[in-house]
Design a protein around this nucleic acid. Sequence first.
DNA 1: GTCATTAGTCAACAAGCGTTGACTAACTCG
DNA 2: CGAGTTAGTCAACGCTTGTTGACTAATGAC
Lengths: 198, 198
Amino acid sequence: MDTPSPTAAEKRSRRPRNPEATRAAILDAARRLFGRSGYDQVSLREIAAEAEADVALVKRYFGGKEGLFTEALKTSFQADRLAGWDRSRFAQDMAALMAGDPHGPETRTESFQFLLSAAVSPTTAPLARIALQDRFIDPIRAWIGGEQAEARSRLLTAVIVGLLVERLVRGEALQGRPREAFMAEVEQMIAAVLGEPV
Amino acid sequence: MDTPSPTAAEKRSRRPRNPEATRAAILDAARRLFGRSGYDQVSLREIAAEAEADVALVKRYFGGKEGLFTEALKTSFQADRLAGWDRSRFAQDMAALMAGDPHGPETRTESFQFLLSAAVSPTTAPLARIALQDRFIDPIRAWIGGEQAEARSRLLTAVIVGLLVERLVRGEALQGRPREAFMAEVEQMIAAVLGEPV
DNA sequence: GTCATTAGTCAACAAGCGTTGACTAACTCG
DNA sequence: CGAGTTAGTCAACGCTTGTTGACTAATGAC
């Protein structure tokens, strides 16, 4: 046998020794799982399993669970930054997003949920405050401008968060007339907060 | 010594054997602690200590942690039912409540937070859905009436929840002009959702 | 007063957690 | 090639959790 039985070699160190890739895999798994279930619900062993890595590597790369969480929160929802949204279609897009099926494929809210679960737990609330300010309140205020910008951006952020919880708790998709009615109301309300003619 | 050293007798069974009172004490402590920190953050031992009772009694009276949580959630915020609020002053009262100091004495939001933390955790989300429907969405719909009642009550509930999170995350009281501006915006928005002239 | 029932206590359990350090194998540099 | 560093693995630690069953003492029925 030229190629000896690979079992022994295969069992150990299957991963091709790529530190950046492993680090990224762990971080990715963390974002996914933390976003789905919150800080306490997820164990490092679950994350490691999802990333097909060893638990001990969490310490190596992130110092511990809290470090991993912080890093995951920091690098979360790059794509979902509200700043990148089209303001003229904001109310419609948000209404459609919030009326959708919570378990559907077009989710896009997973990273929001991450932030939300962070906000509720007192342990992680300070981190959540920074992230909320950074990614929601500040960019929205920049849009709005004017004298009431601060109050309105806080308010709009609160509305989005509330709608997320509603969506999360609802458990199933709105369909037909209920969906349309809900969307229409959301749209109208957001427009009102944005200070636009209804 | 006629009255012998009471240490031995005192150590055991100090509580005067009052099942209803102990049950109530445990339930009360559970409401308080669950409301402050959420399901996973609170251990049964903490609750038992707060109630000055033994951990094992949780099993006796409630079957386990989940049973205690369910019972606590069910019997929570009797006083805070939105149904009891004065509708004509609803927008103002809610705005004032939400602008207040999160750590202030006039809280009144502890039991809301209880519900909120239940809503975010997937384990307890189904329970939270029932409670939300029962205590918020349904009574609000009864107020509103009309064709859009369902959509609007969902929306108003979402707004309240979002404001709670904002308050929770904010960490300090708004004061002076920021507070007034925030309150005015909240008031106006709620009034809009309620379908009242602004 | 005696005996069965029940409220409350105590100690221990199995399981899961985050964390740690010793070990092995792979890469890098001289 | 050989030495040193680094990536990844493994087993175990100490701790906390919810839960359980054996025990003690107070209550209530007769």
